[in-house]
Amino acid sequence: MFKYLNPSYIFTITGKILNVLKFIVTPIIIIGVIFSVFVSPIDYIQGDAVRIMYIHVPSAWISLICFAAISFLAILNFLFKIKSATLFYKSLAPIGLTFCFIAIFTGALWGQPTWGTWWAWDARLTSMLILSFFYIIFICGYKLTSNSERSAKICSFISVLGLINLIIIKYSVSWWPTLHQPSSISLFRESTVHLSMLIPLIIMLFALLLYSALIFLMKYRIETIRVKKKSLKD
């Protein structure tokens, strides 16, 4: 039982998973792109522009999930001084930031042919931009402070504000009139995306999640080695 909690055991296991992931991520992304650009049908109003959804929506989701996870871990570390939580959030934050930028960039490219504008200061878009700022402040929060106690405080405070922003992002389209359309997929009701379009969306989500897992494991190894090095030096 204790074998599974041993850091060196986790280290070897993650190494093995990494090797598998490295080989399967690229093919799955390629399948996802083929499905979203060639196989899936066009939309009845948007035509081919709907294909941008297959990368825009999963990226936005991943950036939201990532922020929820890093805030949870940062708060956990602040409350109970769980040092291993810092390794997790340090490995997750860069992934979330990347996908946040991807979501904003593809959103601009989707907005131009459909809405007729690259950017609008509506509640959803603005709160998403604020999320990217929160990511940047969070990363600065642990990169620029050498004192671990202080960085835990800064990161957890940013997390609290960021979590409120996360709720605002989620409900912005239902609370206020926005240019952005309301969400199509929810756990509690049938999705308003047709099945033939849901399939590429799910494949892309799966592919990008696997990619995130790959980067996460690599970053996790980097952070573990860094911690080891630090403890060796001291």
Partner: peptide, 11 residues
């Protein structure tokens, strides 16, 4: 600006 809804389906 055009606003579209949350429904996506083939023609």
């Amino acid at each position: 600006l055009a606003k579209h809804d949350e429904n996506y389906m083939p023609p």
